[in-house]
Amino acid sequence: MTDLEAGRTERLLPVRGGVALQRYRDVLIALVAFVVLASLPLFTGSKALLDFVIRCSAYGLFATSLNLLVGYTGLTSFGHGMFFGLGAYGFGLIMQKLAVPIPVAFIATLTITAVVAAVIGAICVRLKEIYFAFVTLAFQMLIHSTILSWASFTGGDQGLRGGIPRPAFLGIDLSNHVHLYVTSCALLVLGLLAMRQIAQSPFGYTLRMIRDNAARASFLGIDVWRAKLTVFVLAALFAAMGGMVMALFVSGAYPEFAYWTISGEGIFINMLGGVSTFLGPMVGTVLFLLLNDTVTRFTEYHGIVLGVVILFFALGLRKGLLDFVAEWAARRRETGEGR
């Protein structure tokens, strides 16, 4: 077995009082990260850089939510991208057809996603590894083919065109590029902070136990099915958030957002950055988008290049980047304590 398991290198539950301390630390890091990101437009006028960060927010939310399933719970979902697509389409359609304020559309999309994820999750989470992977993939293809064939509602293979209306709300005007940028950063930081709280909560440790030994968790009185379903729905919500950021960014939604390759990319991002740390997928996102942008600039056959890089990581290194960092830190800590 490879050790693709989140939190392997962490110490176990912090001692009493440590939990609150760790939470303050996380909030502080999140605040600093947000301030740094949000002040970026003051120093640079580069639209390309800001666009890159917005795309990182969308993909980062998606990839980190996938890590809740893959790394923390051991559920290898190969159809997680359906919620990314659902978020983008749900948000775009609500804004186009109903003309409600943006926060209302945001909440409504999350509600729809939660319901869909609960139904799909209820069917899927009972299944074992490879079945789970493929049945989630099958549902992804179902959603994708529905988007394609229901052309009168979703625009079919042309996608949602004509732009998504972005009315200003409380002085925040998302059609302004800087406003959109700051909002994306805020959503990213808030989303990551929320996922971090989930991962470090007692529920998060229940998930780790289910991953390591589901039978034992069941003996201890944990309803494994319910815990898995809960995290499936939670992860779907954050993926939909990523999809909404993407829809705001491109001012539309395209069938590719719901295609299976998005899920494949998500898995690869997790692999690239490493799933044993919380921020691994975020690092993977930045690396992946850099790689993707560079490769598409030089060749139209980026599938081959991407494939070779994936093979190098999967067969050669067998770990993500932050996994190495985490292991190195753990080794240092061990030798340090041994002295």
Binding site: T76, G307, L315
Partner: peptide, 30 residues
């Protein structure tokens, strides 16, 4: 390739195959 990932994590097997789906499609395109 595949003989290297027997008994490995499902994630690994999926990734190796995913890489080849990308590569094979582009090979056909070329």
């Amino acid at each position: 390739f595949m003989s290297r990932v027997y008994g490995a994590d499902v994630l690994m097997q999926l990734l190796v195959c995913y890489a080849f789906v990308l590569i094979f499609d582009d090979v056909v395109r070329i």
